[in-house]
Structure formats: structure tokens, C-alpha cells
Design a protein around this nucleic acid. Structure first.
Length: 337
DNA sequence: CGAATTTGACCAGA
DNA sequence: TCTGGTCAAATTCG
């Protein structure tokens, strides 16, 4: 077995073991809420699934090495290129030859981003990933054009994540952002995840937007509040966001990290956009508001297309019950993706 | 000068 | 045939 895959496999299995240990601690009657346990079980499941994927791949391709982003692509059912170690010749493996159709099946979801102050012409938010604009189109019946962005690292790392940004007809301050595909590039430049607004899952079969019945999460990072609506906590902590050390020690220790469900009606007001000013691609650049707090970091908004039992109903989740410092080693979750 | 953006052309699906 | 999504050459930017 190739060293890289062996390492990946060990990493997956080790992580599964560690998560199981954490789950065990949370199963104590006086411990964390059920949602936290469910979240951990999902992480464990994901870990073992990927380990199995590695094993399956090895059994039929004993000479090939799979890198993390390629694993992610395989999971998406997409084509990946592998370089045969012996000949250096590239050949393609795939679960399906029809890449375009597969691309169409990538998870897709929308967010409505409200911009209160300042201007944000196109691509209104810095969501932690770097995007390159590749097109703009006037949409029939819409007052504003739709802009198309793809991941900057698409060519280098094969990241197929794209997003579409369109200003709302009803409220020019609202941008409808449709994401498609997960980032496999691990280029999340920021720490965690912030979703500024409503997220609606788009059904892959019916192509219809499904109202997201889920609640928001308000992250309190010291003096800064992050209002997060999410349908799935595991979506928020998307694998690719973890590929690099995610929780800066200063970040973890710097504030009382807590997440509480709040009324959906309070959605848009909680994020203080006034702390930001126009930046790249009409986006928002972080302004150091207090000089001493690292909590003003924007956390990348990333979600996946999966539905989780965690998200059914209100998510009353307090991180007080999860010790990020010791029991929740986010910085070691680089195995995912 | 390389990277990012713009914009018309092209293509696939409805 | 129309529309949305992507490509790629031209242009602009840093």
C-alpha cells in the first residue's frame, strides 16, 4: 500500500477512534445534549466511510495514490485523475464518465446575504474562500445580472466549488448566493463558519428550493456575535474547513464560545456588517474593530447538501457542553476531505 | 508581467 | 428556440 494512502487510512481510523472516545464522554447522563452526540456519530460515520473508501480503492488500484481532494471528488461521484507511480502517465478513473451530469448533481444550496452598510456590488461576502469570476449573465426577468464564480484553486486542486451571486429584485441590499459543490481545496482562509442568512436546500431531483425550517445559531465570540442560521451543524463545520488547523488556540481560548438557537425572525440583524467595508469582488474586508480580539475573523460559510438528524427541530446547542480545548480536537480533523 | 475580470460565443437542456 | 451555465480571448489591474 502506498504511504500516502496508508497514512490517510490510519488517520481516518484514528480519528474514528478518538471521536468514539469523545462520544463516550458525552453519553454521560449529565453531559452534553443529544445533538452533540449525534454530531459526533456523524463524524465517526464519515471517518469510517472514508477509510472504507480508501480500502476499496486500494483493492482495485493497488498502485495508485489518492490525495484528499481526490477522495472528496470520488465521494462526489466525480472523475479524478491519478498519476500512476510507475509510468508517470496520467489516466482517468471515474465513477461516471458524464462529468457534466455529475456536476449538475453537486450539492447546491442558497443563501440570502443582506448588506446593510456600504456597497457590495457583486459577490457580496467574503465567505473565507477565494473565488474567481468566470461569467456574468443577464437573467430573464431579473433586474440584476447573475455573476458566476468558481474556486480560484480549481485548476490546481481540482476544486469544483462554484457560486452564483445575484442581487435580489425585491431588495437590492440582498444578494442571493447559490453555492454548488463542496470545496476540496482546503483553502478556507479563515477559521470556522459563518452563514449570514437563510439557507435553502435545493432539491437535486425537483430542483425546487426547500424552505429551511431550521434555526439560527448565534455565535458569541467575546464581544462579537455571529448569527448563524444552519440546517445542519455538520454542514457548518464542513470537512474542508478543517483541513487546515481550524481553531487557533487564541481563538479557542479567547472567548466564551457558545452557540444558542435564536428565533429565525431575528435573522438578519445580528451580524454587524458595519464592521466591514467594501473589499475584493465587492466583498467585505475585515476591520479590526477592537484591536485586541481575534474574534472578528470571518469564518467561512460552508455547507453541504446532506440532511442531518441533528438539524431537525431547533438546535439548542451550547458549546459549554463541548470542551473544544480538550475533547473536540478540531485541529486534528484534517482527515476529512 | 502574471493574475483577475470582462464579455461575447458556445453548448446543453427544457 | 430560448435560457442558463461555462468557456476563452481580450482587456484591465496590481
Amino acid at each position: 500500500m502506498e504511504i500516502m494512502e496508508h497514512k490517510n487510512l490510519i488517520s481516518q481510523l484514528t480519528q474514528g477512534k478518538e471521536l468514539a472516545i469523545q462520544l463516550k464522554t458525552h453519553l454521560h447522563p449529565s453531559s452534553s445534549p443529544q445533538e452533540a452526540c449525534l454530531f459526533l456519530t456523524e463524524m465517526i460515520q464519515s471517518s469510517f466511510e472514508k477509510a472504507l473508501l480508501l480500502l476499496n480503492f486500494n483493492s482495485s488500484n493497488s498502485n495508485n495514490i489518492l490525495f484528499p481532494h481526490q477522495i472528496a471528488l470520488l465521494e462526489e461521484g466525480l472523475e479524478v485523475e491519478v498519476e500512476e507511480s510507475s509510468t508517470k502517465n496520467k489516466r482517468k478513473i471515474s465513477k461516471s464518465r458524464d462529468v457534466l451530469k455529475k456536476r449538475k448533481l453537486l450539492p447546491r444550496w442558497t443563501e440570502e446575504v443582506k448588506v446593510c452598510n456600504g456597497t457590495a456590488p457583486e459577490g457580496p461576502l467574503n465567505d473565507g474562500h477565494s473565488w474567481r469570476k468566470y461569467g456574468q449573465k443577464d437573467i430573464h426577468g431579473a433586474n440584476f445580472p447573475r455573476c458566476y464564480y468558481r474556486c480560484t484553486h480549481r485548476n490546481v486542486r481540482g476544486c469544483l466549488a462554484t457560486k452564483q451571486v445575484q442581487r435580489s429584485d425585491n431588495d437590492p441590499n440582498i444578494f442571493e448566493v447559490t453555492y454548488r459543490g463542496r470545496h476540496t481545496c482546503s483553502q478556507s482562509t479563515n477559521l470556522g463558519s459563518v452563514v449570514f442568512s437563510t439557507q435553502n436546500q435545493i432539491s437535486e431531483e425537483t430542483n425546487q428550493i426547500q424552505e429551511n425550517p431550521n434555526s439560527e445559531i448565534l455565535f458569541n465570540f467575546g464581544e462579537n456575535n455571529f448569527n448563524l442560521k444552519t440546517e445542519d451543524f455538520s454542514n457548518v463545520f464542513l470537512p474542508c474547513s478543517f483541513e487546515e488547523p481550524m481553531m487557533d488556540p487564541a481563538f479557542i481560548g479567547g472567548g466564551s464560545l457558545s452557540a444558542t438557537a435564536v428565533s429565525p425572525a431575528a435573522s438578519d440583524a445580528a451580524w454587524d456588517w458595519s464592521a466591514y467595508e467594501g473589499g475584493d469582488e465587492g466583498g467585505l474586508q475585515r476591520v479590526q474593530s477592537s484591536g485586541e480580539s481575534d474574534m472578528t475573523e470571518i469564518i467561512s460559510a460552508t455547507t453541504s447538501g446532506t440532511n442531518s438528524p441533528i438539524c431537525n427541530g431547533h438546535w439548542d446547542f451550547s458549546l459549554d457542553n463541548i470542551d473544544f480545548d480538550h475533547n473536540f480536537p478540531f485541529d486534528s480533523l484534517d482527515f476529512i476531505s
